[in-house]
Amino acid sequence: MAATLAGVPARPRRLLASRRTRIGILYALPAVAYLLALFVYPIFSTLLLSVQDLDGSLTLHWYADALTGVNLSVLFTTLRIAAETALFSLVIGFLLANAISRLRPLPAALAMLIVVVPHFISALVRTYGWIIMLGDKGLVNQLLAGLGVPGAPYQLLYNEIGVVIGTTAMMLPYTVLLLYGVMRGVDRRLLAAAASMGAGRLVIFRRVYLPLVAPGLATAGLLSFILALGYYITPALMGGPNQTMIASLINQQVMKQNQWNGAAAEGVILLLLTFAGLLLVKLVSSLGEAKKRSAS
């Protein structure tokens, strides 16, 4: 055996390896075809569209348009609303997930169902639901008026408050689901260990619990930020003209102006913003890690 191997050195092995690679490619083929057809081709054609002038020549003026005047302020509005949405869905999601993770298994499963089920209803229907609830004669304002809160009824629709309430509500199932998973994964005995050393509830929360769920918080925040960036229905229906977001702008350009090239440029910018968000979180978390390492 050893002799034959020594006599015919690398060749059979290379053959085997290449055969294995070929089989591997065969297995990967459907996935590759799928990605090519559904992701790479559309993105590539969008990219192409965004740098083509109407006559087919190369240009960057769609990007220039997208980054000036009203379009630029739409971009900033989008970033702001997405950030606000991420913040609120993170805070509310944290409180909800934390409360649910302390329940016994059965009530916890029920509570998760209540959080997640609305997600199966069309976003359009839920948005109209919110519009009814937040109107001048809606449940929320009637409640506030009934409680004698001064200034009620408030304008809760067709402004930024409305948009943020709406999008936050849409994001909550995601954040709660994600945070709940992370919180369930925290070993509660670690908290008991901290208590045995004399740590009070607040210290345990700040020094042990929060750091342990921090990766989940970052992911959940990022997820709702990215989802909110491209959100269309809720901002379009619950916002006013000042809350026009980038998705609405793209829609207008395509539907009203038949302006595909400009829309493509906006789309590419949205994609880049998403990547930037991802990168930022990655950077911050690895920076924290590095700081910890150098400190100790």
Partner: peptide, 13 residues
């Protein structure tokens, strides 16, 4: 009191 747990329970972070 001090407590040493069977599962160590060191803080992973």
């Amino acid at each position: 009191l001090g407590f040493v747990f069977q599962q160590y329970l060191l803080f992973p972070h």
